[in-house]
Simulated assay, not measured.
Amino acid sequence: MLATISTFELIDHASDLGQAVIQSETYLAYLEAKKELQADTVAQGRIRKFNQMKDQYEEVQRFGKYHPDYDRVSSDIRKIKREVDLTVTVATFKKAERELESLLIEICEVIARSVSDAIKVPTGNPFFDNMSCSGGCSSGGGCGCS
């Protein structure tokens, strides 16, 4: 592909957009939440414990309910996961992460729609996103698609 002036301009605009995201309140809140999570020794201990337990859980899952420790390990991992999720710094970080992801998805959608309405933009989990289907969802038009 030959580089043209317009290609360089597009790259400059993309770089400017990236800098705008980095300077946004959403990104700064994400960085602050990440820093607080990394400094929280209780949260880090719980995460480490969860990761160790996850290895045991994966081993038990290979055999399913026939593994002798299946019930204990399954119960323990749910308890540890809940402890991790209820830790304030973890919850704050996850919220900031979702907000940053939402901002980036919104930017991607604006860029894609400015080029063409036919461009599909991956937006994460379709069960939690706004249902804006572009057809073929098998709901008979119940979602409002055509």
Rank of each mutant, 00 (worst) to 15 (best):
I77Q: 03
Q56L: 13
Q38D: 13
F63A: 13
Y66A: 10
T89E: 07
S74P: 13
R78F: 12
Q38Y: 11
I80G: 00
R98A: 08
R72Y: 10
Q38V: 10
Y66L: 11
A91T: 08
A43C: 01
R46N: 10
D40C: 01
K81H: 11
V88Y: 13
S75I: 07
R62T: 06
K49D: 14
L37F: 09
Y70A: 00
M53V: 13
Q52N: 12
G45V: 02
R98Q: 10
K34N: 11
Y70L: 01
E58T: 10
V84R: 01
T92Q: 09
A43N: 04
K94V: 09
V88W: 15
A39C: 04
T87W: 08
E36R: 09
G45R: 06
D71L: 12
V42Y: 14
Y66V: 04
V84F: 06
V60H: 07
K94W: 15
Q61H: 05
K95T: 12
R98T: 10
A43Y: 08
E59G: 08
T92F: 00
T87A: 00
I80M: 06
S75W: 12
K35L: 05
V60T: 06
K35P: 12
R48F: 06
A96K: 00
M53G: 00
T89H: 02
F93I: 10
R78G: 02
R82F: 11
V73N: 03
V88H: 12
Q44F: 00
L37C: 02
F50G: 00
I80L: 06
D76K: 11
I80Y: 11
I77Y: 08
L86M: 15
R46S: 01
D71T: 08
K94N: 15
I80Q: 04
D69K: 13
I47V: 15
K34R: 07
D76H: 09
D55S: 15
R72K: 14
E83F: 14
A39P: 12
T87M: 00
T41K: 13
T87E: 14
G45P: 09
E58C: 03
I47Q: 02
Y66F: 13
G64R: 11
F50M: 07
V42E: 14
L86V: 07
G64T: 05
T89S: 08
D40F: 03
D85W: 08
N51A: 03
I80S: 01
Y66D: 14
Y57L: 05
